[in-house]
């Protein structure tokens, strides 16, 4: 009986672990998180990133992008702003742009493991949706390592 419970639990954990790769409904769990990581060190800009995140979750992509671009103009070295913008592009199914913005975010987020992890998750998601399962798994692995 005990064994059955353990097996069930492991199965659930396994399935939920893979869900972002396999069973993902729209929008992805990558994007349903509350807030994008990567504090810019400037709270006014962080607020803009948070606002952009909210606008994206409401499906208001156009304004989300405008808000986040404003954030990255004010704090051009902010990996977080690029990351949040890459999520907007992901939700808009602009995978090429999402990938590039996530890469840009990675290049700026050396000091934030969390931001790097989230960027790799976006990259993994993009690759999965483009059918590159190996690339997706590879990126997810990088995310897990962080």
């Amino acid at each position: 009986m005990m064994l059955k419970h353990v097996v069930t639990l492991i199965t659930i954990l396994f399935v939920s672990g893979c869900s972002s790769l396999v069973l993902q409904p729209q929008p992805s769990s990558v994007n349903s998180q509350q807030a994008t990581a990567g504090s810019t060190g400037v709270s006014a800009v962080d607020k803009l990133i948070a606002k952009g995140d909210v606008q994206r979750r409401q499906g208001d992509y156009r304004n989300a992008a405008a808000t986040l671009e404003r954030a990255l103009r004010l704090s051009p070295q902010s990996g977080g702003a690029y990351l949040a913008l890459s999520r907007v592009r992901l939700d808009q199914k602009s995978y090429g742009e999402a990938l590039q913005l996530a890469e840009k975010s990675l290049s700026l987020s050396a000091d934030s493991k969390r931001a790097q992890k989230e960027a790799w998750l976006v990259i993994s998601e993009v690759k999965k949706r483009r059918g590159d399962i190996n690339g997706s798994l590879e990126a997810a692995k990088k995310a897990r390592r962080l």
Binding site: A65, E69, Y82, E97, Q100, L101, E103, K104, S107
Partner: peptide
């Protein structure tokens, strides 16, 4: 009324290491 926005566009052309 907003007509058009010209958003930022980036594309990796050099590896972070070589940059």
């Amino acid at each position: 009324k907003p007509l058009q926005r010209y958003g930022i566009d980036v594309e990796k052309r050099i590896s972070p290491e070589h940059t």
